[in-house]
Write a protein that binds this DNA or RNA. Structure first.
Lengths: 200, 200
DNA sequence: TGGTTCGTGATACGACCGTACCATCAACTT
DNA sequence: AAGTTGATGGTACGGTCGTATCACGAACCA
């Protein structure tokens, strides 16, 4: 046999090629041949490491959410040690706004997957579909802690406000994506919403 | 010639068939043949009234936004004569939440178009892409009037709060669509946000 | 009344895309 | 050394989809 190859690594390379293509041509326009060309391998190789296109797409989605998790973690580290609840919440919400190329790709491809998932049950069954629930629980807990530490204005409802924050940042992200809004103004809106929750 | 036919009417029928198909199979899965079958006409007819698929899609988008406008108008009428600013804002925001089949289709197809528009300049140039700006201006003006009439809490910023309301309802709409949230809980979140703006 | 034109159907064409198949070469084993 | 097996390339097949072509019938005009 030729040089034994690390399948996991190869699959990652191909998945990232998929995300690059999806990021600037749109997920709907992704062809197996495009992915192969972008990854610099032959079409046969893409077939070899992912038998079918559907499996490639599912793996690409996994990889996408994984990299998003890493980006959130990086922002949390950048927030210093023992960051306050507001700093943690900002890290999470700002990571999901399409401010740079990577997060733009994430948001576009994630939205594409979400749209597909509405009518595709194989996609709808994927775990990424339930990760928002985890984020909601996490944010709710953070707000509850902030409330107990008396860092919030009166009248805060951790669960309801967590839901609103997530929906708001998702909506803002989409409007950045389609060019209705600049990242800066979206951040300002988000900060304003946080000001309504956290006391100075 | 055979019985002279009303082109506009026929185009509308076909466009509605398009929206029905897009509404439950997804816009990406819409084929010319599906639209023809759904409309109960031959493939040739769809070609006849819309030369190309792209033109059909563009017209479908026009029709979609038009019908959305009618739905908002209907809600406004249902709000009674001389409704207050909050009632008007509620009419606008609640109309865009996917609460029934029609609004669900609207939200799904509209989102599909938005995703396509990110990478398709012909779609991006369509007027629907600037209608959110009009909505933002409208909401801003309503909030400003409410503020002058002393109906709001202090600290309201009409422009910023209008942006937040629109992004929030868009985000909530998407989470209803993908099944993360019930329409009822989304409405509750939206009402809560309005409570933070309008005085009792 | 005859011809022109609008509306409609059936079908064919050409392109593209995912997948399958076949061949080849290199390295590790025995 | 020989054979087996993993990795890779090239290419062909089958299906599908948008679009084009051909044909025909029915109404309106002159």
């Amino acid at each position: 046999m030729p040089k034994r190859v690390d399948h996991a690594e190869r699959r990652t390379e191909i998945a990232e090629a998929l995300l690059r293509v999806a990021g600037h041509r749109g997920l709907h326009a992704v062809r197996m041949r495009d992915v192969a060309a972008e990854a610099g391998v032959s079409l046969r190789l893409v077939q070899y490491y992912f038998e079918t296109k559907e499996k490639l797409l599912l793996y690409g989605l996994e990889h996408l959410t994984e990299r998003f998790g890493e980006r959130v973690a990086a922002r949390l580290r950048a927030a210093g040690d023992a960051p306050g609840p507001r700093a943690v919440i900002e890290a999470i919400l700002l990571a999901s706004l399409p401010t740079d190329e990577a997060s733009r790709t994430f948001h576009l491809v994630h939205t594409s997957y979400a749209v597909l998932a509405v009518t595709d049950e194989a996609l709808a069954a994927q775990p990424f579909i339930r990760s928002p629930e985890a984020a909601e629980n996490h944010l709710t807990e953070l707000l509850r802690q902030a409330q107990e530490a008396d860092l919030t204005h009166p009248g805060v409802d951790p669960r309801q406000d967590a839901i609103a924050l997530l929906a708001l940042s998702a909506g803002l992200g989409t409007s950045i994506l389609v060019g209705h809004r600049t990242p800066e103004s979206a951040v300002a809106v988000l900060e304003r919403q946080l000001d309504g929750i956290f006391a100075a």
